[in-house]
Structures are given as structure tokens and as C-alpha cells.
Amino acid sequence: MTVTVMPDMATGTSRATLRRNFWRGVWRVLCRKPSRMAGVIIVLGFAVMGVIGPLVYPANLPRDDNALYASPSLQHPFGTDFEGTDVLALVVTGARYVLLTGLATALITVALGTLIGLFAGFRRGGWDSALMRLTDLNLAIPGLPLLLVLSTVWKFTSPLEMGLVLGLLGWGGVARAVRSQTLSLRERGFIEAARGLGLPTRHIIGRELLPSMAPYIAMNMLIAVTGAVYAQVGLFFLGVLPFDANNWGVMLNLAVFSGGALTTPSALPYLLAPLLAILLLTLGIVLIVDAMDEIFNPRLREE
């Protein structure tokens, strides 16, 4: 008796097998170096902090006037600030704003940059010229002066608002890089074959070019998160934006300019806690990017 395998069923099975093999390879790459697994744990820890932290702590954190700049202890692992508020609670509750802003910025930056870069590099001609002039205009916009003007009418109380502005200001570099990759890939044999078959542009870009560039895009997205974290923390630290939301940049500003952290040793934990959080988050992302480089580049895989 002959068993006939339907083409759709065979295709679905092969795709499922490829997915399983891919995730097994990801697990092997992560386990090969403990530092990479540490990076995943660090980033997941911050993600959990951003999701659960505001649910654990009340909206208005309690203050203790009798414990101003209290030393680190079991009750206050990082001490208290100049108002007697637990520093660890401030770091945890401020993580959501920072992480959501970073994620929103990365999504907008990568989505716009990838879309414009892919389309410009594939179509070339007039479309390429027009989109690249738009990209040059985006790269020429002075971000800090623009944010200074916007801060007079926009309070940026929502991380999505901040992410939207940073994303709209930061997609130009990704668009330029993706366009360069697209110009290289469009001359490859599999793209020429797809065009020879008369496949529509949407299919070629979405099914042929985009998967080939997925590793590069994913790495740019992670790097965009770190850039967004530095940008927003720096803006709040400089006092460019109003302090309507608690986050690590606000903590740094208050510690330096209001809390005397640079002159008072007891105030140092209030300054060092957000700095440590930023350092750990950056380290976790860098370690994951290192793993992704090996996952998507077979030449770097160790035997």
C-alpha cells in the first residue's frame, strides 16, 4: 500500500523541523558560553522588573523622615534617598518607563528604517533618490534642540510618547545601513531568479530579502534599545524634560543636583543604584548581541 504525502503537509512538517533545529542551535550557542546565558537572564530580569515592579510597590512610595539617606541594610538594600524613600523601590518602579521607552523606540526605529531602506535599495531610481533625501533630512535634524522645544508643550509622561519621538528621530541610520545591505543582496542569484519568475515586489521584499536580513535587523533592534535608554536617561539627567514620571534619569538628576551625591558619601548609593541598573542592562544586551552574531553567522560557530 502506497502512502501519499500531501505537499502542504510536507511543507508544514519541514518548516516545523527547521524551527526546532533553529531553537536547538540557539540553545547550544547560549550554553556554549556562560556569559551569554547570563545576558539572557539579566535582560529577562529587567523585563520582569518592568512588568511586576509597579504591581508590587504602591504608586506613591512611602517616605520615612527619620531615615534620610539611611545606609544599605536588609530593609533597604541600596539605602534611602534624601526623602527617606527606598532606593531599590525607585529603581524597580522607574524601570518600566525606561524599558517601555527603549522598546517603543527600537520598534519604530527598526520598522521605519527597514521599510524605507528595503524599498529604496530594491526599487532604486527615483524612489531611491527621494527616500534617501528624506533619510538625509532625518539625519540632519538636531535631536536635542527639537526635544527642548517639544518639552515646552509636551510633558512626555507616557513612555510611548518618548519612544515615538526618539524613534522618529533615530531611524535614518538604520535606513542607510539596510539600503546598503539590500543593494548587495538584490544582485544575488535567488533575487534574480525571483524577478525572472515575475514575482511581485511585495513578495520579493517580504519573502526573499527580509528573511535574509532578519539577523541584521534583530541586532540593530537590540542596539537601538541601548541607544534609547542612554538618550532618555541623559535628557532627564540634564533636566531637559519635566520630572512628571519616575525613572533612572530623574534619579540621577536629583542625586547630583538636589541630593548632593557628589559631595555627601551617604548619598552615593542613591547615585550608584541607577548607574548600576543601566550598566547591567547594557551588559545583558551586549552579551545577547554577541550570541546572535554567532547564531546567524555559521562561520563564527565554534566546533
Rank of each mutant, 00 (worst) to 15 (best):
V3R: 09
V5R: 15
V5H: 12
T11H: 15
T13R: 15
S14H: 14
R20S: 01
F22Y: 10
R24S: 11
W27G: 00
P34F: 05
P34Q: 06
M37Q: 04
A38G: 11
A38Q: 08
I41C: 09
I42F: 14
F46Q: 01
A47S: 05
M49F: 09
G50Q: 08
P54F: 05
V56E: 09
V56M: 13
R63W: 02
D64R: 07
N66C: 08
L74Y: 15
Q75P: 09
H76P: 02
F78N: 10
F82S: 12
E83Y: 14
D86E: 12
T93A: 05
G94E: 03
A95K: 00
V98I: 06
L99A: 01
L100Y: 07
G102Y: 12
G102H: 10
G102S: 13
T109Q: 00
V110P: 01
A111V: 14
I116M: 10
I116P: 11
F119M: 14
G121S: 09
F122C: 02
G126C: 08
A130W: 12
R133C: 06
T135F: 05
A140C: 05
A140L: 11
I141F: 14
P142E: 01
P142G: 03
G143Q: 11
L144Y: 02
L144Q: 10
L146H: 05
L150N: 07
K155T: 13
K155Y: 07
F156M: 09
T157Y: 13
P159W: 04
L160C: 04
E161V: 11
E161H: 14
G163C: 00
L164N: 11
L166K: 08
R176C: 02
V178E: 07
R186N: 04
R188T: 12
I191N: 01
E192Y: 10
E192T: 10
G196H: 03
L197H: 14
L199E: 13
L199G: 01
P200H: 01
R207S: 15
L210C: 03
S212T: 12
A214G: 11
I217M: 07
L222I: 14
V225D: 07
V225W: 13
V229H: 07
V233S: 09
L238G: 04
G239T: 01
V240E: 06
V240C: 04
L241E: 01
L241Y: 03
P242G: 08
F243Q: 14
A245T: 15
W248M: 07
G249F: 06
L252F: 06
A255H: 12
A255Q: 12
G260Q: 07
T264G: 10
L272Q: 13
L272I: 10
A273N: 08
L276N: 06
A277D: 04
A277N: 01
L280A: 15
L281M: 11
L281F: 12
L287V: 04
L287A: 07
V289C: 02
V289P: 03
D293H: 06
E294A: 01
R299G: 09
L300H: 05
R301F: 05
R301L: 04
E303Q: 07
